[in-house]
Computed example of a mutant assay.
Amino acid sequence: MNNDAVPDFFRRLWRLPTAPARLGRRSTLDVETVVASAVRLADEGGLEAATLPKVAKELDVTPMSLYRYVGSKQELLQLMLDAASPPRTPAAEPSGWREGMRLWASDLWELYTDRPWIPRVPIYRSPSGPNQIAWLERGFAQLADTGLDWGDKLMVLTLLTGFVRHSALLAQDLEEGRSDHSETEDKDGYARALRALVTPEHYPHTAEMLASAALLPSDEPAGAAVRADFDAGLELVLDGLAHQLPEDA
């Protein structure tokens, strides 16, 4: 491979060899060290704990010195995202595209649950790093026998990724909002207030929903209820996909 044809960002992302500096003392840092430190800070304190100044302080260097290894703050985030997203292999071979995509999405959900800062990384570009490409490859493998063309396969993976990412962020935001109140108090107060304000004359469908059992408190732990909502939503997405596939897929 001609490394000269690969842009610097991709060289760092894929850990390709780079030309050493010709002058000055040889640095003790490298891309791997900088990114590993940033990921560790994010795991401990969230995305806001892994800024360039904080990473530099952790490594006892100046923030400006890091630009040699990460290019920019946006690039650091992309390097962190890929490094923190190792591919996961199913314990057993899925039986069919639906089970395969269900496991794919569930494993992505687990990744976002284990490292909640990952879905908060702004999306600056399409998947580019080796770990992201490995996730893409696994998804393509599950769709290989569906009869979908490449554009449709990309659309499926984009849709599922967006669903998982949004679900994870929503779960995080709701958890933060409940930090000072119990889930039962939140749902009870929400339902009571809306029942007093939402009248059947102006909002007939919403009023009917509020009168139903949809907002009754659940006996399930909050985490279990969130996962159940995710699983139910995922099945709806897969149902929609099933209607687009040939009958023999």
Results as ranks from 00 to 15, higher is better:
residue 225 A to W: 03
residue 185 E to Q: 12
residue 69 Y to L: 04
residue 212 S to F: 03
residue 232 A to W: 01
residue 59 L to D: 05
residue 69 Y to H: 14
residue 44 E to C: 07
residue 235 E to G: 04
residue 238 L to Y: 05
residue 159 L to W: 11
residue 120 R to I: 05
residue 7 P to A: 06
residue 48 E to H: 13
residue 22 R to I: 09
residue 158 T to Y: 05
residue 134 A to R: 01
residue 146 T to W: 03
residue 11 R to N: 01
residue 151 G to N: 11
residue 7 P to C: 09
residue 249 A to G: 02
residue 125 R to E: 13
residue 19 A to C: 01
residue 81 L to H: 05
residue 43 D to N: 06
residue 23 L to T: 14
residue 59 L to A: 05
residue 34 V to T: 07
residue 24 G to A: 00
residue 87 P to H: 03
residue 114 D to T: 13
residue 82 D to N: 08
residue 185 E to C: 01
residue 32 E to G: 03
residue 150 W to V: 14
residue 64 M to I: 15
residue 245 L to W: 07
residue 243 H to W: 14
residue 33 T to C: 04
residue 235 E to S: 07
residue 206 T to S: 04
residue 12 R to G: 00
residue 78 Q to K: 03
residue 118 I to S: 00
residue 106 S to F: 00
residue 210 L to C: 09
residue 86 P to D: 03
residue 77 L to V: 04
residue 188 D to R: 14
residue 124 Y to E: 06
residue 165 R to I: 07
residue 56 A to I: 08
residue 176 E to P: 02
residue 98 R to H: 09
residue 148 L to D: 01
residue 31 V to C: 06
residue 119 P to L: 05
residue 2 N to F: 13
residue 127 P to G: 06
residue 41 L to C: 14
residue 63 P to S: 07
residue 38 A to I: 12
residue 83 A to Q: 10
residue 211 A to C: 09
residue 246 P to W: 07
residue 228 A to G: 08
residue 230 F to I: 10
residue 196 A to T: 09
residue 82 D to K: 05
residue 226 V to F: 04
residue 37 S to W: 09
residue 114 D to V: 12
residue 112 Y to D: 06
residue 150 W to P: 01
residue 44 E to F: 05
residue 228 A to I: 02
residue 215 L to P: 00
residue 41 L to F: 12
residue 8 D to V: 15
residue 137 E to L: 15
residue 81 L to V: 00
residue 17 P to A: 01
residue 211 A to N: 15
residue 22 R to V: 13
residue 238 L to Q: 01
residue 59 L to P: 04
residue 93 E to P: 00
residue 149 D to W: 13
residue 191 A to I: 06
residue 126 S to R: 15
residue 84 A to C: 05
residue 92 A to E: 15
residue 111 L to V: 13
residue 123 I to M: 04
residue 103 L to G: 11
residue 74 Q to R: 12
residue 154 L to F: 12
residue 75 E to F: 03
residue 26 R to G: 06
residue 135 W to P: 08
residue 106 S to Q: 13
residue 196 A to W: 11
residue 127 P to D: 06
residue 88 R to E: 15
residue 6 V to H: 08
residue 167 S to K: 10
residue 86 P to V: 05
residue 177 G to Y: 10
residue 228 A to P: 00
residue 201 E to V: 15
residue 34 V to N: 02
residue 2 N to P: 15
residue 71 G to L: 14
residue 148 L to A: 06
residue 157 L to A: 06
residue 110 E to L: 14
residue 113 T to P: 00
residue 186 D to V: 14
residue 44 E to Y: 02
residue 92 A to L: 12
residue 45 G to A: 11
residue 108 L to Y: 06
residue 188 D to P: 00
residue 194 L to R: 11
residue 148 L to E: 02
residue 14 W to V: 02
residue 97 W to R: 08
residue 159 L to Q: 09
residue 103 L to M: 11
residue 210 L to Q: 07
residue 63 P to V: 08
